[in-house]
Design a binder for these strands. Structure first.
Length: 105
DNA sequence: CATATGACCTTCC
DNA sequence: AGGAAGGCCATAT
């Protein structure tokens, strides 16, 4: 196996994220035991097969609760709408309420 | 083939 | 308390 397994591991964690809940890149990276690789978790999402592959990248948000503008499915607006459709609540500042919807392993 | 950048987070000053 | 820099692996040019 190659180090690329890191991607597979990232997908594995993201895939474990329950519906109506969101996880942060750093948290996922930390789960894999590589808190410094938070950046590549995002890369993994970019190369992710999509939710069709079981990788709900839209449930992955920043550590502060903001989404990924310009790189998401069709815009942070679409992503935000999807999360709301899953039951995730958003704060008036346009961020996810990690206080309540942050996925806890 | 080598160089540069990237959906980020953590830590130090 | 706020600001700045670093770090890591992979992908793309």
């Amino acid at each position: 196996m190659t180090d690329g397994d890191f991607f597979q591991r990232a997908y594995n964690i993201v895939r474990q994220v329950p519906k109506g809940r969101v996880a942060t890149y750093g948290q996922v990276a930390r789960m894999m035991g590589e808190p410094r690789k938070a950046r590549y978790v995002g890369f993994a999402m970019h190369s992710s097969p999509g939710m069709k592959g079981g990788v709900p990248c839209h449930r992955i948000v920043f550590a502060d609760g903001s989404l990924a503008p310009g790189f998401a499915f069709g815009g942070a607006d679409e992503q935000q709408r999807m999360l709301e459709a899953e039951g995730v609540g958003f704060l008036p500042n346009g961020k996810v309420d990690l206080r309540q919807y942050l996925w806890e392993a």
